[in-house]
Each structure stands twice: as structure tokens, then as C-alpha cells.
């Protein structure tokens, strides 16, 4: 079975549409959405409704820090423009969309796979996995073969051997990577709605558990249209600009 893992969608409809179309062409049977449905982008409602439909068809969906902020109000340590975007987002959402956000868990486990938005050590505190040692801590806390994390916007793959040696790797677009189950793997698919590694194409990953293969994909989408919508909504222009250069 092919499982597509999407994360950090950030209210970017054009990016999500492109990724879902790409995933269908790869014959993906199931989806996991690791959170941050809202924030930065101009179409939080559409993105949440699409996520809700996927969940109705069996998809996994988790709560991200931006989603939590939309529910509870932005925390004091959030950057000023992100807080502004949260306040704007709160004005756009319907009660049903808030209900959906409230229903989302922080983590979900399925067999050998654990899904979290940020990290497996303290999922609700939103700390980043920035290094090999962060990855080892999460893999040990998670106690799983495959751990998928969002929150970091740059795609990366960490791997841990039986002798506790950890390596990391920046994946290439579309190249299947063997991920045998005798190692532990922590995969960061990268962001669908706001890539920041200099490549504006939307990022996501597909795990084929039977073949024990993981593929990271980059999908080009109409980021100019997504940026126009951000400007039209009166959100900070910087959110629009960064989509076109993927920063």
C-alpha cells in the first residue's frame, strides 16, 4: 500500500491541489496529513474542508502549532506577522472548521509507523528536529520503525542503525530510497504549502511499506496565483513573495 505523507499545508490551495493530483497519479491509496493546515496562506477554509473529506475516507490528520494557535489564539512567542495571519485566519473559519481542528490529535501510531507534527519527545511543545541528536531522541521516544515529522520545512531523512549510529541525508526528488525495517527511519517530507529550501515546488513523500521504499517528491504548482490571493486578502506581502522563491 502506498501512503502519501503531507505536512505544513499552510492554507495553500494551489499547492495542495497539485500534490493531491500528483499523488493520485502515483496510485496512492492513503493519506497522512501532519498538521499546520492554516497560517500564512489565503485559503484556510478550503484546505480544512479538503482535509476533512480525506479524513472521512480514512486519512490520518494531526494538529500543528498554527492550527493550535487558530483554536487558542497565537502564543506570545510567535512572530508578529504570523500572529496577524492567525487572527485573520480565525475570522475566516466556520464553526464546523473549528470543530474539525478541535478533533485533531497530536500523534497517531499505526503499526510500525508513528506520525507527529513536530517531534516524538514532547509533541505538544513544538520543538524542532534540527540535528542527528534530535532525531535520535525522537526515534528513541517514538519506539517505532518509521517516524514521520512535519514542522521542519526542509525535506530530510535520518536513519539509525542497530548500533545506534545516526546519519542524515537530503533526498533527491523522485528517487526511491530503500528503507529496510531493521533500521529506524525519521522522515521529514518537507512543506506542501510553504517550501523554504530555495525550491518553490511543493514537497511531500510516499512510503510503500510492502516494497520498503520511500520517495520524496517535489511538485511544481501555480505559486503566483497563491501569492496573488495572499496579497488580495491583505495579508503581509512577504508571505506572498516568499512562495515564489521558496524561502
Amino acid at each position: 500500500m502506498k501512503l502519501a505523507v503531507l505536512t505544513d499545508l499552510h492554507a495553500n490551495r494551489e499547492a495542495l491541489e497539485a500534490v493531491l493530483e500528483h499523488a493520485r497519479a502515483q496510485e496512492v491509496q492513503r493519506y497522512a496529513l501532519l498538521g499546520d493546515f492554516v497560517g500564512y496562506g489565503a485559503e484556510p477554509g478550503w484546505v480544512l474542508d479538503t482535509a476533512r473529506e480525506l479524513v472521512a475516507q480514512g486519512a490520518i490528520a494531526l494538529l500543528g502549532n498554527h492550527d493550535e494557535a487558530a483554536l487558542k489564539g497565537a502564543p506570545q512567542n510567535m512572530r508578529a506577522d504570523a500572529r496577524e495571519a492567525i487572527a485573520w485566519t480565525q475570522r475566516q473559519l466556520s464553526p464546523a472548521q473549528f470543530d474539525f481542528l478541535r478533533s485533531l490529535p497530536l500523534t497517531q501510531r499505526e503499526g510500525a509507523i508513528l506520525f507527529v507534527h513536530a517531534n516524538a519527545v514532547a509533541p505538544g511543545e513544538w520543538g524542532y528536529v534540527r540535528s542527528r541528536s534530535d532525531a535520535v531522541a525522537s526515534l528513541q521516544a517514538g519506539g517505532c520503525q518509521y517516524l514521520f515529522c512535519g514542522h521542519m520545512h526542509d525535506p530530510r531523512l535520518y536513519y539509525l542503525s542497530g548500533t545506534a549510529k545516526c546519519g542524515d541525508f537530503v533526498p533527491s526528488d523522485g528517487v526511491p530510497i530503500p528503507v529496510p525495517a531493521h533500521r529506524q527511519w525519521l522522515a521529514v517530507p518537507g512543506s506542501v504549502g510553504q517550501p523554504r529550501d530555495g525550491n518553490p515546488a511543493a514537497a511531500y513523500a510516499i512510503l510503500d511499506l510492502a516494497a520498503q521504499e520511500l520517495v520524496f517528491h517535489r511538485v511544481p504548482y501555480d505559486h503566483e496565483r497563491a501569492a496573488d490571493k495572499i496579497r488580495e486578502a491583505g495579508l503581509p506581502a512577504w508571505f506572498a513573495d516568499r512562495l515564489s522563491d521558496g524561502r
Binding site: C166, G167, F169, P171, S172, I177
Partner: peptide
Amino acid sequence: HEQLPDLLEEE
């Protein structure tokens, strides 16, 4: 292999 993780590198 340039496009696959180098399992030996960390070992």
C-alpha cells in the same frame, strides 16, 4: 550512490 543515504559514512 549520490542519491541514496550513505550508510557507511556514519558507521
